[in-house]
Structure formats: C-alpha cells, structure tokens
Design a protein around this nucleic acid. Structure first.
Length: 306
DNA sequence: CGCGCAACCTGTCTGC
DNA sequence: TGCAGACAGGTTGCGC
C-alpha cells in the first residue's frame, strides 16, 4: 500500500508534531514487529529518548532519536503510523461507535504504541503484520539503506541519464524495472502504472529498449505521478490512512490504476489489466506503445537510400 | 548475474 | 448462509 507519496504525506504531517517530543514509553505488542530483537530490548532502548527528526528514504520512515540512533520503520502493505489523542484513541480512522468493551479495528491491529511526553500517542497499526521496525546506529543506517535503495526520484540526481544507466542492457519489463527499489526508490505498484501511462510507455517494454526521448518521458512521468500522489494526500484504496488517521484522495485521481474497462483519460482506448511479475498492471494499449527490444548493433547492413 | 515467483500474513470479496 | 479460492499497496530469498 504505502508508496513514496503515502510515506511522504505521513512524514510531512507528523514531523512538526513529533520533533522535540520525548518518548515516555514504547510498548511493542507484536514481537515480529521488531524481530530479531526482543520487544523488551527495543522498549528499553527507546524509552526516554527525544525525537530529533522524522524523515523518509524510499518507502522507509526514519525516526531520528537523540544519542545517535534511528528507528527505521517500514509500513509494507498495510501499516499505518498515526498520531492519536483523547477521544480519537478509540479509533482514529473510522469514527465508528463501539459496543462496550469492543476493540476498534485500529486497536485490534495495533502493533506498537509510543506514549509521548505531551499525553499523545503514536500508533503503528498493521492488519497484515508485514510492517517492521529496526533500531540502527547512524553508521549502520547508511549502509542498511544504501544496500537496498537507489535514487530518490524527487531529488536532482534523478535524471534521464541516470535512468538510462540503470536501464542499459536490461531485459526486465519496465513495470518490474520501476518496482525494483535499488533503481528508483519509492515507486510501488500504483505509481509505476501511473508513471508509465504518463510517459506513454508499455509496461512490458524491456527496460533496455528505451531511447533518450523515452528516458526523458519516464523520468517526467515518475516525478509527475509521485507529485500528484503527494498533492492528493496519498491513495487509500483500502487500508492507508495519513498521520492523522484520514484517508487520502489520490485513489479518485488515478489515471489508469484500478480503472480496468474504463475509457483512457486521453480518449485513446480502454484501460486493460494484465499481470506483470505477479502484480496487477493497468495501462492503455492504445497510447502506451510497446517498444521493440533494441537489436544489438553488430554487422548492421548499410541502409539503402530511397 | 538477471529474472520470475513463492512466501510472509490477514482481511475482504466473489462465485458456487 | 457457508465455504473455498482469489486477491491486495512490499520485500526477500530461492531456483532456474
């Protein structure tokens, strides 16, 4: 679920609220949340620390603590990080009335809870339990991230040339290419589809088949898709909630993702769904032309002039 | 090395 | 209504 725009939204909302706050206690309710270390160990290491920053790298959230350590969190498919207070505590996301003693969905799925020094709480909820947290020293942090993540797509380093270097010689479909976090960090299934549509590129085109104009288009498409996601406050297809427990609006703005059978926004054709490396993939076959695999230039016969 | 796919989990929806 | 099966935003590790 949460891709770069969703994580960025949470980050922007919570950073000003959390910066400078002291963590009174941390309670880890699900041991697999912080595996391999034991909940008690993490709770002790985090309690009493002051939050210096909340940042994002790819789809990771980085909670910077005093003492030179960072709590790295990943929401995976269904994780949420929500600041709750007072009455909201019953259920920050649904506003449902509960029977006496009944636990809300958020409470049932609560994996970890930070109590802050101002009485508010930061909840990590996650129905599917894929989400994770890891406490790292600043030196380990860099190595950990560097081995997993490539270029930040909203940074100046993300150029058509850089994209070309990554794609050179690759036969993977463009869709899979975009999903690889070691290339472009933060693009997931939703924004890969949206970026390819914007770039007018077919999801099955081999990554190495892109010419300079395609690389430009893809760079622009990725940036535009991600910025639209951030502007829309993220996409809530199902579980995603922002840092305040609210749904995003981006799901109403999708150009092709989840729009199977609907007319192409450019009016060119009908959106189709295919499966690429196991993931649902939506595109318009009329305006996203499939590129031919680039032939290796070897013994190319001289072209005849017409 | 590059690539595709199953596995990790739970919840929800569809079709019989 | 009940139940089996498919499917879901991500990442990792394994096999080819």
């Amino acid at each position: 679920m949460p891709e770069l725009p969703e994580v960025e939204t949470v980050c922007r909302q919570l950073e000003p609220e959390l910066e400078g706050r002291r963590i009174a206690t941390l309670e880890v309710l699900d041991p697999r949340w912080c595996r391999p270390i034991k909940p008690a160990e993490l709770e002790e290491a985090v309690a009493g620390r002051t939050i210096e920053s909340l940042g994002r790298r790819g789809k990771y959230l980085l909670l910077g603590l005093d003492g030179g350590r960072t709590l790295l969190m990943h929401l995976r498919m269904t994780g949420n990080l929500v600041l709750v207070e007072g009455e909201d505590r019953l259920d920050p996301s649904e506003g449902m009335r509960l029977y006496e003693g009944e636990r809300s969905a958020s409470e049932r799925h609560l994996r970890a809870r930070f109590a802050l020094d101002d009485g508010r709480e930061l909840w990590f909820t996650d129905p599917r339990r894929f989400g994770e947290a890891l406490l790292l020293g600043d030196d380990e942090l860099d190595a950990h991230l560097a081995s997993r993540l490539g270029i930040e797509p909203l940074s100046a380093q993300f150029t058509a040339a850089a994209l070309g270097e990554m794609a050179a010689g690759r036969t993977v479909p463009l869709k899979s290419f975009l999903l690889d976090q070691k290339g472009v960090a933060g693009v997931g299934n939703i924004y890969a589809d949206e970026a390819l549509f914007r770039a007018r590129l077919h999801p099955l085109s081999p990554a190495g088949s892109m010419k300079p104009e395609h690389l430009e288009a893809l760079r622009d498409g990725v940036v535009a898709a991600l910025e639209a996601g951030i502007d829309g406050g993220g996409a809530s297809i199902d579980d995603y909630r922002d840092g305040r427990g609210e749904k995003g609006r981006m799901q109403d703005e999708f150009l092709v993702h989840t729009r199977e059978g609907e007319p192409c926004p450019r009016g060119d054709g009908t959106v189709e769904r295919i499966v690429v490396s196991g993931r649902s993939t939506y595109f318009c076959p009329a305006c996203q032309a499939k590129l031919r695999r680039r032939p290796r230039r070897r013994n190319r016969p001289a072209r005849r002039s017409a």
